[in-house]
Design a protein around this nucleic acid. Structure first.
Lengths: 119, 119
DNA sequence: GTAGCCAGTTACCAATAGATACCGTTGGCG
DNA sequence: CGCCAACGGTATCTATTGGTAACTGGCTAC
């Protein structure tokens, strides 16, 4: 009763998820928030090189999907804190599996690329 | 001692992998090839709605990364067969983890989206 | 003869990602 | 008083990418 295998149906909702995970920024945000809530600028600086517009888009999408929660404090200067929801936190494991795979196979991939390009 | 955590370095090779996984077509190709080699049109028809150009791009990239191998038979009509390499096959597990997560949490995500949009 | 299969390629276009500059509010500083 | 910085973004513009539609060449089946 699992999977039902209709990943291949373009309307399959699984596609939506894969698109989210696939978004490189989403993964980084999840990993950054793993150790606790962060503010907008902390996320921006933690990610390194991301346009604020893109970070905003990413966070809004994640908020809409119920992966992060957004708390606004009406202070001056303003303060906005992003936190992983339980569902967002449940993504950490799948993502870890992926990053582990990536780190394990990175050398092989680089080698394959070099060989391919040499031809 | 795992991960070294430099996923946040834009030059980190892990990013490259995540970009590949993130590519929605790559995941589908891996899942389709799980049960054995397929030809170009079989992949195209299996995926459903994909432009041949895009499928070609995807397959070339995967070949370059060493995830699939491409075998050309000099026949008429031409025959090209794509097969998962061992490294490509090793991606099945991480991908399964993801799709399982996706299927498990899909209802919650849909609900979160509906709530968000209602506001 | 013409229509179609196979594995793509080419030309083109729309949507998106991203870089850069800017916004209002307030507090601190000279 | 004038000036700048901090914060969490928006506004605007451009580059890249994803995607569609049409075409190729050699053959075969109708």
């Amino acid at each position: 009763m699992v999977t039902k295998g209709n990943v291949f149906d373009p309307n399959c909702p699984t596609r939506v998820i894969l698109d989210r995970i696939g978004d490189k920024w989403t993964v980084l945000v999840v990993l950054l928030l793993r150790d606790g809530p962060l503010r907008f600028t902390e996320l921006r600086d933690g990610i390194g090189r991301i346009a604020p517009k893109v970070l905003t888009q990413t966070l809004r999408r994640m908020e809409r999907d119920g992966l992060v929660s957004r708390e606004v404090f009406a202070e001056i200067p303003p303060r906005v804190v992003y936190t992983l929801t339980p569902m967002g936190a449940s993504l950490i494991d799948p993502i870890s599996v992926l990053t582990t795979w990536a780190e394990t196979h990175m050398p092989a991939i680089t080698k394959a690329q070099t060989q391919y390009d040499a031809v």
